[in-house]
């Protein structure tokens, strides 16, 4: 099979702006979309969720020409809904991080598990060859690893993938949504359960009053570090010294 004849699916979730909370395409899924666009091939964007969400249209602005939509009520199981439309794809791409609600970033893993496909995470680049498909993974400390993958496979895209999604309004107007009938699904019991928060000890910290210059000095010159080591004295004296310190820094008010 040639590289351009591959069938690629991109899983698109709804994200939220972290400041305003406004609905938007999930940032990482946009990276997946952009990676997929650059690969060429036959691309399908799939979303499971509320069909009336206007922000989905922004996926078109970011370059998707169409969107396959599986309607899903709030709280429905996204991964199972997606799987119903994912038969026969060579590559399934998704972002790594979710942006809101109960999103956990586990969808690509759940999809891979259900479909019995391998998953490669933290991917920043993909090369589709006629023979083999190679992906580059981001590792800690800026290291990179090149991995050869047998298709079909699921790929979770790293948040710092080397692509820039581009928003073009004209494309937004041209995009088309195809809505599928939602599959009948057993309602899943939410894996989440609630419990009351426990009170945890809070670590007291003196407010930093030193100038930037002094802080810089204390980081590089041992003598400039300040503070005192109390080795001698009775336990009561030492306790008094600690109390005095806490009062001085207004960490306690008694």
């Amino acid at each position: 099979m040639t590289a351009t004849a591959r069938r690629i699916a991109v899983l698109a979730a709804l994200g939220r702006n972290p400041v305003s909370g406004k609905a938007r395409p999930n940032r990482d899924d946009l990276l997946a979309l952009e990676l997929a666009r650059q690969l060429g091939g036959d691309l399908t964007l799939i979303h499971a969720g509320n069909p009336d969400e206007a922000a989905l249209g922004d996926y078109f602005a970011y370059g998707a020409s169409s969107l396959d939509l599986v309607p899903l009520a709030d709280g429905g199981d996204v991964a199972s809904a997606l799987v119903t439309r994912l038969a026969g794809y060579d590559l399934i791409l998704a972002g790594s991080r979710a942006e809101g609600g109960e999103g956990s970033g586990l969808v690509p893993y759940l999809v891979a598990e259900t479909l019995g496909l391998p998953i490669v995470a933290d991917v920043i680049a993909i090369t589709l060859g006629d023979e083999a498909t190679e992906v580059t993974q981001a590792l800690a400390k800026g290291q990179r690893r090149r991995v050869r993958v047998t298709l079909p496979a699921v790929i979770a895209v790293y948040p710092k993938a080397l692509v820039t999604p581009r928003y073009a309004y004209a494309r937004r107007l041209a995009g088309r949504v195809t809505t599928y009938v939602a599959p009948a699904m057993e309602p899943v019991a939410s894996p989440w359960h609630r419990e009351a928060a426990k009170k945890r000890p809070v670590k007291f910290r003196a407010a930093e009053t030193k100038s930037g210059h002094a802080r810089m000095l204390s980081a590089i010159v041992a003598e400039a570090r300040g503070g005192a080591v109390i080795a001698a004295g009775t336990p009561a004296d030492k306790a008094q010294a600690i109390l005095a310190y806490l009062r001085l820094h207004k960490l306690i008010d008694w």
């Binding site: 305003s20 406004k22 970011y62 820039t164 581009r166 928003y167 073009a168 309004y169 004209a170």
Partner: peptide, 22 residues
């Protein structure tokens, strides 16, 4: 901007900010 969205520098980011946060 409207047909390709290809803006240099931080312009795209600024436009996304405007859409999402005003």
């Amino acid at each position: 901007t409207l047909t390709t969205g290809e803006l240099p520098g931080t312009a795209s980011e600024t436009l996304a900010n405007l859409r999402e946060t005003g």
